[in-house]
Design a protein around this nucleic acid. Structure first.
Lengths: 209, 209
DNA sequence: ACGGACATACCGACCAGTTGGTATGCATCC
DNA sequence: GGATGCATACCAACTGGTCGGTATGTCCGT
């Protein structure tokens, strides 16, 4: 999403504006508490435009998860930690980047997919599946490097995808705790949690080499 | 909450029924998507009864976090893992108990406070604070044993409360991932995550003794 | 002139919250 | 011990406003 369109006017269509507004509002208040009218107001478009692009509010939810997945996926894919020679450095580099992103209030660094899926996992299977794709997409992107790093270590009986999923679990859990404490301490608390994750990975991947 | 009242008819007042319904509905659909009418229907009481006991829907949310905190707190306080002589066994015993509780669909083992705070942390500071009390209450209950276990190990520069918080973060993150995959795999995925937490604690607390 | 991209106006359903009321229990006073 | 007074617990019916969604129209590039 948001394709690079150099030398061309950015589309900023009503659809894009609605998705951007969706990211902001869902992060701040969740999916259910965000009304279609509110989305239209925040995006500066009318209700007619909304239902021209999305068949329903649920359809926006699904599209939002996809939009979120694409934009964050592109960001992490372009990050420099991929160029490290040692796969362990690539894995820890990913965690370090996630730590570096933790700043400001919780609604500025939390995950749209994780927030949405908590509310909609039972009421809308389409949204649940779209959010699952987003989260497991992150795991799969990390899995390659974890797998290579595990092969170097003497660790036995550990699955790469399970470890990659653990990174996502800790990240999602850190967001929940950050929202709970609120205020200034949110980012610091989240960072503390990712440092535990980093230590765990370091213990596993650098053991007995 | 729900005091033992042997030989007396259980109160099952409208208030208690509403809180029980709140636990169920918030787990299934979140706080915002749960309407007052729905709560009353599920509890088998009228709307008048609701607003007799709670000044607003938000007030129910705050009371619900307290109710959740008390009932789960009492459960864990009474668990047998506290009797282990070695503090490391008590910490790992807590994690093992949490693993044992993971069964069935996500809505049957997920956390009411964690779900609510994701939606309401900005819109209602009262709910945010009540949920934070519930989650940090769990951390503080674990902190004592973690502190004693850390004192035995040769680990340096690790704070007990930070580690106890990490347990809560992994648990909350496991719930998010479990909701995302949905269906039969939910509990298994959550268990997998808590096993990583267990391994991390084991690596830290049993190191170089 | 035709289709995509919007805007305006509106609908029935449902929302949180309010109203005025009833039923019951428990003191207090004669 | 029976009448009085008052609080608690609960109820059915209602309100103004907001919800997701629709019907219909207009603009505009091709």
């Amino acid at each position: 999403m948001i394709p690079n369109q150099a030398f061309r006017p950015l589309p900023v269509s009503a659809r894009d504006k609605l998705l951007e507004a969706g990211v902001k509002l869902v992060r701040e208040q969740g999916y259910a508490a965000t009304s279609v009218d509110q989305l239209c107001r925040a995006a500066g478009v009318t209700k007619g435009a909304f239902f021209h692009h999305f068949a329903s509010k649920e359809a926006l939810g699904v599209a939002l998860a996809g939009y979120w997945s694409s934009s964050t996926g592109a960001f992490f894919a372009a990050a420099p930690f991929h160029h490290a020679a040692d796969p362990v450095d690539r894995v820890l580099g990913y965690i370090d980047l996630r730590i570096a992103l933790l700043a400001g209030p919780a609604e500025s660094f939390s995950c749209v997919a994780g927030t949405m899926v908590q509310e909609a996992f039972l009421s809308s299977d389409a949204i649940r599946a779209a959010c699952n794709d987003s989260i497991t997409g992150n795991s799969r992107a990390l899995e390659q490097d974890v797998s290579a790093a595990l092969a170097q270590s003497h660790m036995q009986g550990l699955s790469a995808i399970s470890l990659a999923r653990h990174a996502q679990a800790v990240i999602q859990g850190a967001f929940v705790l950050a929202k709970a404490v609120g205020g200034e301490s949110a980012a610091g608390l989240a960072r503390e949690q990712l440092l535990h994750l980093r230590r765990y990975f370091d213990l596993l991947l650098r053991s007995e080499r």
